[in-house]
Design a protein around this nucleic acid. Structure first.
Lengths: 213, 213
DNA sequence: AAAGATACCTACCGAACGGTACATAAATAT
DNA sequence: ATATTTATGTACCGTTCGGTAGGTATCTTT
């Protein structure tokens, strides 16, 4: 899939995956609308026609960048859902976000949040698409919590939707703080506080063994 | 200050304060860069030369809109600092943010967050200015907590900086959720959970009477 | 070696951007 | 009445935006 080994016609002079990686970094840093075509071509080391031939247009390139983002930098999300208990999921989620969004080797914050939080009318489809991705993530979280509830891993009277929203608030709030310059240490302190709240709100009946203070 | 009663020259055909209010709404909805001059002039009911004569330029207009925003829609912040106890401050802050950022009579979310979260290089000064405003708010919060600590209203071993950061994470995270369509009810549920965390982290030694489950 | 396919590069497109010159209109001051 | 001052409205400025036409270079196929 990656190599363009045995194809007819003149071969590409650049690596599509590496170019996409560069595009991701720029979009992450400047957002969808804040990123210009020259920003992209310069970072990717190609010119505009090559970009359009390889990726379609700016919006489709952004979609592919988002896809890459979900698999790589934001890759802590899906594994967190697979943790054996709701508490461990929350733990992975919160510390994953704290570390990921302040990772010095990447732009600060979360692309799904700052990619197109507010924008002109012409970028509304991108904004809407990010909203839906965020809501989808929240829904997955909620469903994981409901599963935990069915398994007796979460208090029967806990409000899974509210708890999922609470967790997402932490993730997005921490990403804003990271974008404002917060350190990984500070965000981890916040994660510790939030985790106590989660434990208290989620485990009030079952009184699970580990965790909580 | 508002009226232009007895001045020489042709009088303004529009109300500066109302025009600024309209500009605030547009910036709030679309962000600094997402808002175009035609967006502004149409909403304000004036044309470009009038806008430039009255407000300077787009950036200065944005600064005045931010100022108005801090006094009006985001007006729950400063009063919260004046609450008698740290817990009550947190309470006012969290519920204020929950209600304010989802207020159906205004654009969703927080202008200080989504006004210029990520942007092109040319808007970097605006982005930086919002970052500093957010950090300043966090610092005020931290200082209020330190005061509470000095008054014995907060556990002596509580980390005021971490707690302030935690509270700001809630405010900003809730504003993202509001921008994604979360209801006031849902955000208030989140505020309840966060408040429990605050109580647990802040009052662990003093074991204050009220609050906390 | 010729033909066909694909990529690269320069140079350009119309539209929208933020911002302004300049003439006209409406008020006060003398 | 006239001069002065300020606001309005139109029409424009140079720049940048996302996107593309068309010629040239480099590969495979036959």
């Amino acid at each position: 899939m990656t190599g363009n080994a045995n194809t007819i016609g003149r071969p590409r002079a650049f690596d599509v995956d590496k170019a996409l990686q560069k595009a991701l970094e720029v979009f992450w840093e400047k957002g969808y609308e804040g990123t210009s075509l020259p920003d992209l071509t310069e970072a990717m080391g190609i010119n505009k026609p090559s970009l359009y031939a390889a990726f379609g247009n700016k919006e489709q390139l952004f979609l592919k960048a988002i896809e890459l983002y979900e698999n790589r930098p934001c890759g802590f999300f899906q594994p967190a859902l697979l943790q054996p208990t709701a508490y461990q999921m929350a733990e992975h989620l919160l510390f994953g976000a704290a570390i990921s969004s302040s990772d010095p080797s990447n732009p600060k914050g979360c692309l799904m949040v700052q990619g197109a939080l507010s924008c002109s009318d012409s970028a509304n489809s991108v904004k809407q698409m990010l909203i839906e991705k965020r809501r989808s993530g929240e829904l997955q979280l909620q469903q994981r919590l409901e599963k935990a509830q069915a398994e007796g891993d979460l208090a029967a009277d806990a409000d899974c939707a509210a708890l999922a929203c609470f967790l997402v608030v932490q993730l997005h709030g921490m990403s804003i703080q990271a974008a404002s310059g917060a350190t990984a240490e500070r965000l981890q302190q916040v994660a510790v506080i939030a985790l106590k709240a989660f434990a208290k709100a989620a485990l009030q009946q079952t009184a699970t063994a580990d965790s909580a203070n």
